[in-house]
Structure formats: structure tokens, C-alpha cells
């Protein structure tokens, strides 16, 4: 499939020149095209922030909701129509800060969605404050003495919660990022892809060069089915590993567990309440509760 089916034509894009978001947008189009996922068969769900504007630059169904609230909406959308591919995509502040509680519980719920997080370790849209993933000592107009909160480690948290697919990518390597995204989208169940990207305007600490120097790919010998090994790699600090940390292919999804699709595969919009059964239920109140 041609990735240009997702092109919007001439549009005004709100991202800064040189922003990592452009790279992610481009890689995502190629990923979806290679997986033959059409705009009609995809729903992009996002929150608020610069990364969360991505559905506007992309031809597809989309639900651009509230700051931090993409995951509950994405979960319900998938549950209401399991045949459509659902991607929940936003930035590190949105997914890990404002939406931190939903991040944790969505992993527990395990809907078959892909969670892509643009991680530039800073707030862009609100102009340069610390994000949950900002490094210690990072100075901002609010964190004037430098960040002293322990950085949020989404990879370790996701593995701790036994998320079915946990990976990290760096947008400086488009080809590898695409391969990781393809596997994440194909994975049945919740998948997390945290993508390192530079913020050229507000993060002078974690630059493109910094990411190059502070990351490396997990070796081929890393066994992603070994949860303990995955966790050890997730808490490495000097150099941050990239690639697929962890896969658990044996988890049932939220849509499986809600219990209404086993016999009837139709999405909710095709269904009508069973009034004969409802009459029986009402009549039960004649004798018992």
C-alpha cells in the first residue's frame, strides 16, 4: 500500500522546524502502509500537546480528546468495535504525567491497542517545563534549581505490570523505529512504544547528539520473553537500551474479557437490545428480585 493515502495535502503544521514529530509522522505512514492498514480501518486517539496534534496531519479517523485521557477513550473505542486498529499517541507529559493513572490501569486492562509515546523529556506546548521523564538536574523556568524528582521509567513500569509488548525506539533511526512499530501494532494486546525524540526548542540537554551517544540496541541474544532479564535492561541508566524489551504473547485482551464477543462478533453500533429477554427480566420482579 502507498503511504501517500495518509497525506493531507497542503496544511499548516504547528511543529517547530527540525522537531522529531515530523520523523515519527513519516515513519508511522510507512509502517501503516506496509501493514496494509487503510485510513478507514484506523482510529488515532490522542490527548493534548504538540505530539497529540499528529492526527491532524494524517488522513484517518481520529479522536483528539483531553490532555492525559487518550487511553480510556482508546480502550472504549476498541471495545466498542474490535475490528478497527486503534493507536493511542501523545507525548510524555500527556501519557505519563496527566494520564499516569490511566497508563498504569490501561496496561492492567490490556486492550488490543498500540500506545505510541513521543518522549522528548520536556513539555513543548506549555514552553519548556519538566516532564515526568526529564533527567535529574534539568533546569527549566519552573524547575529553577533543576529537576530533583526521580525520572519516570515507563519501560520498567510497563514490564512490572506485565504489559504484553514493551519497546523503545529513537526517531534518529527511522528504519528500526518502523520495524518496532510494525511488531507493536501486530501484537495482540496492549503494546507500548516509547520513542525518543529531540525537542529542538526547549530541551538543550537531550539533543539529537545526546540520544545518539546515550542509546544502543539490545543485542540479538536478548530474550524478550524473559521478564526478569527485560526488567534488568529497563533499569539501565548510563546508556539507555533501544529495541523490544519484553513480549508476553499469552495474555487475553480486554475485548476478549468483556464477554460479549464470543458468539457475536458484531460491533456495538450494529446491535439492538433484546426486548423479549428484557420482558422476561422485568417479569422476574413479579416474584423475586
Amino acid at each position: 500500500m502507498d503511504e501517500h493515502v495518509f497525506d493531507m495535502g497542503e496544511i499548516d503544521i504547528a511543529w517547530c522546524p527540525g522537531c522529531g514529530d515530523y520523523g515519527i509522522l513519516n515513519v508511522l505512514k510507512h509502517t501503516l502502509a506496509e501493514l496494509n492498514i487503510t485510513p478507514e480501518n484506523l482510529i488515532m486517539v490522542s490527548g493534548i500537546g504538540q505530539a497529540a496534534k499528529i492526527p491532524h496531519y494524517f488522513k484517518t479517523h481520529f479522536f483528539n480528546g483531553l490532555h492525559g485521557r487518550a487511553l480510556p477513550a482508546a480502550t472504549a473505542i476498541k471495545a466498542a468495535n474490535p475490528s478497527i486498529t486503534v493507536i493511542a499517541e501523545s507525548g510524555d507529559g500527556d501519557m505519563y504525567g496527566e494520564g499516569g493513572n490511566h497508563f498504569v490501569h490501561t496496561i492492567r486492562r490490556n486492550p488490543n491497542i498500540t500506545n505510541i509515546v513521543h518522549n522528548n523529556m520536556v513539555y513543548g506546548l506549555t514552553k519548556g517545563q519538566a516532564s515526568p521523564t526529564s533527567q535529574l538536574g534539568f533546569k527549566t523556568p519552573v524547575q529553577v534549581a533543576g529537576v530533583f524528582l526521580e525520572p519516570f521509567n515507563p519501560i520498567a513500569i510497563a514490564i512490572a505490570l506485565d504489559a504484553g509488548f514493551v519497546a523503545r525506539a529513537f526517531i534518529g533511526d527511522a528504519e528500526q523505529t518502523k520495524e518496532i512499530l510494525k511488531k507493536a501494532i501486530v501484537h495482540k494486546g496492549y503494546s507500548l512504544v516509547d520513542i525518543f525524540q529531540p525537542c529542538v526548542t526547549f530541551n538543550k540537554m537531550n539533543t539529537r547528539q545526546w540520544f545518539k551517544e546515550h542509546t544502543y540496541y539490545l543485542e540479538d541474544s536478548h530474550d524478550p520473553h524473559d521478564r526478569i532479564a527485560a526488567f534488568k535492561r529497563a533499569v539501565e541508566e548510563d546508556k539507555l537500551p533501544l529495541g523490544i524489551f519484553y513480549i508476553n504473547p499469552n495474555k487475553s485482551t480486554f475485548e476478549d474479557n468483556v464477554g460479549i464477543y464470543h458468539q457475536d462478533k458484531r460491533p456495538l453500533f450494529e446491535r439492538e437490545p433484546d426486548f423479549i429477554r428484557l420482558q422476561t427480566l422485568i417479569d422476574k420482579f413479579k416474584t423475586t428480585d
Binding site: 482510529i43 486517539v45 479522536f63 480528546g65 483531553l66 485521557r69 480510556p72 477513550a73 482508546a74 480502550t75 472504549a76 473505542i77 476498541k78 471495545a79 466498542a80 468495535n81 478497527i84 460491533p267 456495538l268 453500533f269 450494529e270
Partner: peptide, 11 residues
């Protein structure tokens, strides 16, 4: 937010 997402998808 779930309920609103569900309506969006036709529930």
C-alpha cells in the same frame, strides 16, 4: 472518557 469514546465508536 471511556463512555465518550464508546459513543464515538457507535456504542
Amino acid at each position: 472518557n471511556m463512555a465518550i469514546g464508546a459513543w464515538y465508536a457507535g456504542a
